[in-house]
Amino acid sequence: MPSLLKQLGLATLLAAALPAHAHKLWLLPSHTAVSEPQWVTVDASISNEIFGFERAYPVDTVQVTGPSGERAAVDNATRMHTRSVFDVQLEQEGSYRIAVAQPGFFLMYEVDGERKRARGNDAAQMLKELPANASNVKMMESHNRLETVVTLGAPNNTALNPTGKGLEIEFLSHPNDLYAGETAKWRLLVDGKPARNLKVELVPGGTRYRDSQEDWSVTSDKKGLVEITWPSAGRYFLEVGTSDKQTSHPKADERRLQYLGTFEVLPM
């Protein structure tokens, strides 16, 4: 991939992580539960509307983990004008975790009283390119994890085991076993440890067709647990974020973590 395109992709990625851009980042699978081996297609976009395409979200780092923990095939990864797409092949019975996650760095500084910004994924290189007279230098590390899960046949948990890195969900209730009116129990983890007091925001799909967001939130308890009761069948956008000082580069002041998931709830 040309480096300019890559830079643009990263810029989009980082811009979306900043508070000024309250856009939502999401993956949207065509199916979440299927009964015969097939390809499913996934869209990736950044938008205010759930789930309406606005700007393509880069998917160069997409990783699909198959039912026995192996990497699964991805095809046709393409960046289009308002969305990226890729296809995932479901061959083996069980659950597939589809994740797009990439860390990045955001540099803020002043030169002669003028505010400047830089973005990239190589913190050392960014610091090296900093003008000699830069002052008030702040560096932030950003991790956005976009995830969704799809299943062929009966769900299993191998692909869903937490990696122990960044902000993740431990799915005590399987994400492809969600039904209207039922309650899912999930645990939030930061670097593999239960994350308490984090606010999980949920938005049902189809905001274009109603007057209010109909969003709601739940907060993790001291064991990191949240219970989510699904009001009706449909697709839901989930967002949770936190920040800490556990940066991967000593010059980074803060690490911002975001988990953005899409889950489908079926009628019973």
């Binding site: 539960a33 299927v34 009964s35 015969e36 046949g153 769900p155 076993d177 039904y179 079926l266 009628p267």
Partner: peptide
Amino acid sequence: EKWLKDIRQWWRRTGR
């Protein structure tokens, strides 16, 4: 088999 998931309750309770 493509349509078996549409027998939704059976699929969830035993079919899958």
